[in-house]
Amino acid sequence: MEDDADRPIIRVRGLVKSFGNHTVHDGVDLDVRRGEIIGIVGGSGTGKSVLLHQIVGLLKPDAGRIEVFGESVRDTSDEEYRALRRRWGVMFQDGALFSSLTVRQNVEAPMREQLDLPDDLRETLAGIKVRMVGLPDNAQGKYPSDLSGGMRKRAGFARAIALDPEIVFLDEPTAGLDPIGAAAFDTLIGQLQTALGLTVFMVTHDLDSLHAICDRVAVLAEKKVLAVGTMDEMLKVDHPWVHEYFHGPRARAALAGTASEGD
């Protein structure tokens, strides 16, 4: 593990993807470093989620190369892909919990699938994960339809980290949450990232999240990654769209918020 510490944990090169005659990605390059929280931003329809789906192997790129842990995601055998998949967790928008299982069974699902654990150990570990994401004990036996949006997202996060993955992919983790819930979720991501040593790949629109927890930000626009860097670097980019994104009225408000927190 130490030997590849300075190698990017995710490496995307020359990625091309189109649906019909609509090209979404045309030459996307991106490196994600081990242990960082990277935020992917971009306008609606710029293919943020498509990029995420391609990295985790749900969609097949038309051209280009995607390496995770130094291995190509597409050129693996089923066995290798299975092993690779165990080392990351994905949280979809709105949690994508299995509606016929309780919250704890949802968190147990990846353990049940991947490992041969005794029942009580699996239940204990799932219980710890559910508590870690800040859900009350009585939520464990509830079904997803009985939970609020914020709780469903937390439960989805608990399922994503069920196997202690090295990378967590989050698709719009704070979308649809109230500001307090969103801030709490940001804090949670930060805490668990430190505690579990996660690398977090986060698709988001939430400028507050970007300011609060992201180490780096990548901007997807014009079918490629337009800029990558820390928030401070992003603020200096003078591409019109990027400038508008990080200097618009909402961006200034978010920036003011983080600045006053620092005082």
Binding site: T124, G127, I128, R131, M132, D137, Q191, L192, A195, L196
Partner: peptide, 8 residues
């Protein structure tokens, strides 16, 4: 510490 806080 994190796990201790969240022990069942």
């Amino acid at each position: 510490d994190t796990v201790r806080e969240n022990m069942p």
